[in-house]
């Protein structure tokens, strides 16, 4: 195809479109790079989950593959001791305040965190850091949607989905450890103007927003 450029990821030569981000080029060619917050149509990418780091030959530091565009002849590696340490630490920090209750979680076996752990051989329970439980109330006030903020990884997919397909009631609030996905004035979903379109439950990579059973 015209305009395709060649790049090398983990020794495998692949074709990518100019301007494409490394992450999507890799995923389209069967090379897995952990990611939570990235989306193909996000401009600019939020690059907030810090899991999609790769190393590029000639670059002094690892870069986030969701923000880095491909250029012809780029030689990229997705695994190294340094990358595994950076990504592993990022993953561990996410897991310190993710309520890990897989057995009772509707997302069990389809959870993005489980996938990352499996692919990279990380442990779901943070091996070095203490757990920091937020103990926030579960909100099941909306029709068909259950929101458990204790499982949220703050990727922001639900907020985008809510604005594109739903009533646009979801947003981020507060700061730091207390940051949450919530509605105006922290109202329960059922009283927030949510129209129960369930778009958020389809994009949530973990069990934070799920269909009520």
């Amino acid at each position: 195809m015209a305009g395709k450029i060649k790049i090398t990821i983990d020794g495998k030569e692949i074709e990518a479109s100019p301007g494409e981000k490394i992450l999507w080029a890799a995923l389209d060619n069967g090379i897995y790079i952990p990611h939570l917050c990235a989306g193909r149509d996000h401009h600019p990418p939020s690059a907030s989950c810090r899991l999609c780091f790769v190393e590029i030959e000639g670059y002094p530091q690892p870069v986030t593959s969701c923000t880095q565009e491909v250029t012809g002849g780029m030689v990229i590696s997705t695994r190294s001791e340094r990358l595994d340490r950076i990504v592993g630490t990022g993953f561990e920090m996410i897991m310190t305040n993710h309520l890990t209750d897989c057995k009772a979680c509707p997302k069990n076996r389809s959870c993005e965190l489980q996938k990352i752990a499996r692919e990279r051989k990380f442990r779901l329970k943070p091996p070095r850091l203490p757990r920091l439980d937020r103990e926030l109330p579960v909100d099941d006030s909306a029709d068909g949607i259950k929101h458990d903020p204790n499982k949220c990884v703050l990727c922001g997919h639900c907020i985008r989905a809510c604005r594109e397909k739903g009533a646009g009631v979801l947003g981020f609030a507060r700061r730091g450890f207390e940051r949450v996905v919530t509605t105006f004035n922290g109202a329960p979903l059922g009283e927030s103007g949510c129209n129960s379109c369930t778009a958020c439950t389809l994009v949530c990579p973990v069990g934070a927003l799920t269909l009520k059973v």
Binding site: R163, G171, A173, T183
Partner: peptide
């Protein structure tokens, strides 16, 4: 802008 965004700013600072 969505009112939840204003709420987000007010609770951020």
């Amino acid at each position: 802008i969505p009112s939840v965004d204003v709420y987000g700013v007010v609770t951020f600072y």
